[in-house]
Simulated assay, not measured.
Amino acid sequence: AVCELDLKWLISAGWTDDFDDLEEKHAGATQPLRHARQSLSELSALVSSAPENPVLVRMCYSGIITVMEAYLADIFIRAVKHPSVKRRFVESYEAFQNSSKKPLSEVFNLLDSLDKTIETALLSLSFHHIPTVKQLYQECLLVSFPPNILNDIARSVIIRHDIVHRNGRDKKGKHHLIECHHVNQLEELMHV
Rank of each mutant, 00 (worst) to 15 (best):
L22K: 06
K171S: 11
A50N: 15
T30V: 09
H165W: 13
R166L: 13
K86Y: 00
H26F: 06
I149T: 08
G63L: 02
R155E: 10
I149P: 02
Y137W: 06
I178V: 15
L186D: 09
I75V: 05
P103Y: 04
N53W: 05
A95P: 11
A1T: 07
P103E: 05
Y137I: 00
H82W: 14
E119R: 15
S126A: 12
I11S: 11
S39P: 00
E23W: 12
K171Q: 11
M68E: 01
A95I: 11
E187L: 07
A36V: 01
N98D: 04
E188P: 08
D115H: 05
C140Y: 00
Y71F: 08
K86L: 01
E24Y: 03
K8H: 13
L72F: 03
L177M: 14
S44R: 10
V192A: 07
H181N: 15
G28E: 01
L10S: 12
V107N: 07
P83S: 03
Y61G: 02
S92A: 04
I77P: 03
E42S: 12
A154F: 03
K171R: 13
I11G: 10
R155T: 04
P147E: 15
I158R: 09
H176Y: 14
M59D: 11
S99M: 10
E179G: 05
V183N: 13
T16Y: 15
Q97F: 00
V67N: 01
W9E: 14
P131W: 11
A121Q: 05
L56P: 02
Q138M: 12
I163C: 09
L142F: 06
K102M: 04
D17H: 13
F96H: 04
Y61W: 06
V107H: 08
N53T: 05
T120Y: 12
H191V: 10
F89N: 02
I149M: 07
K172R: 08
P51L: 13
C3W: 15
K101R: 13
D74F: 00
F145M: 10
G173N: 04
E187Y: 06
K81V: 04
H191G: 07
A70M: 02
V192L: 09
Q38A: 06
L111F: 14
I130W: 02
V47K: 06
H165E: 11
H128S: 15
W9K: 10
V164R: 10
V90H: 02
K102C: 02
A1F: 14
L5H: 12
L122A: 08
E52Y: 14
L189T: 08
Y71G: 00
D17Y: 15
I11T: 11
V107R: 07
R155P: 00
G14C: 11
L56N: 04
V90C: 03
S49P: 05
V157L: 01
H182R: 10
M68S: 02
R155W: 03
L72T: 01
L122N: 06
L111I: 14
S99I: 07
S100D: 10
